[in-house]
């Protein structure tokens, strides 16, 4: 008998998901990320930071009547997923998140040593 448990696990992780639209804005303090995740309740939103990878995942839970038959579908999958690679100067341990009416706001500050410094140019 062949063991395909690893294949199954892989398949579960790679379940088809929608790519939520995002805005990413950077200023001297850090990076602010906004993501649109309509239909996701706060409890069904998952944020992971692992090494330098940030993963945003959310399950869509709509209150739908049992007997409903869909006639037009634009949001065709029940989950969102998007993965970002963080750069070294960002401090992943101090990420703060707000989630309201389907909009996620993530603030990722820059590490102390990466805060802007003015560099004097000396004339020789």
């Amino acid at each position: 008998m062949s063991d395909n448990s690893s294949v199954k696990k892989q398949a579960a992780r790679e379940e088809a998901a929608l790519l939520p639209p995002v805005d990413v804005i950077e200023d001297s303090a850090g990076i602010t990320l906004y993501a649109d995740l309509p239909g996701v309740a706060k409890e069904r939103l998952a944020l992971h930071v692992e090494a330098d990878t940030l993963t945003i995942e959310g399950e869509i839970a709509l209150d739908m009547p049992q007997s409903m038959v869909a006639s037009h579908t634009e949001v065709s999958l029940p989950r969102y997923r998007r993965v970002f690679t963080l750069s070294k100067e960002l401090d992943a341990t101090r990420v703060s998140a707000e989630f309201k009416s389907g909009v996620l706001k993530l603030s990722i500050p820059k590490a102390e040593h990466a805060q802007p410094r003015k560099i004097d140019v000396k004339l020789l």
Binding site: P38, M64, P65, M68, A70, V75, K100
Partner: peptide, 26 residues
């Protein structure tokens, strides 16, 4: 109308028509 904002799903039951408009942050 695909691809507009807000994205929409439409369905029906014998009693009602259900429309879901995905309009976050409004």
């Amino acid at each position: 109308a695909r691809g507009g904002f807000p994205a929409m799903n439409v369905g029906g039951t014998p009693q009602a028509v259900e429309i879901y408009a995905f309009a976050p942050g409004i």
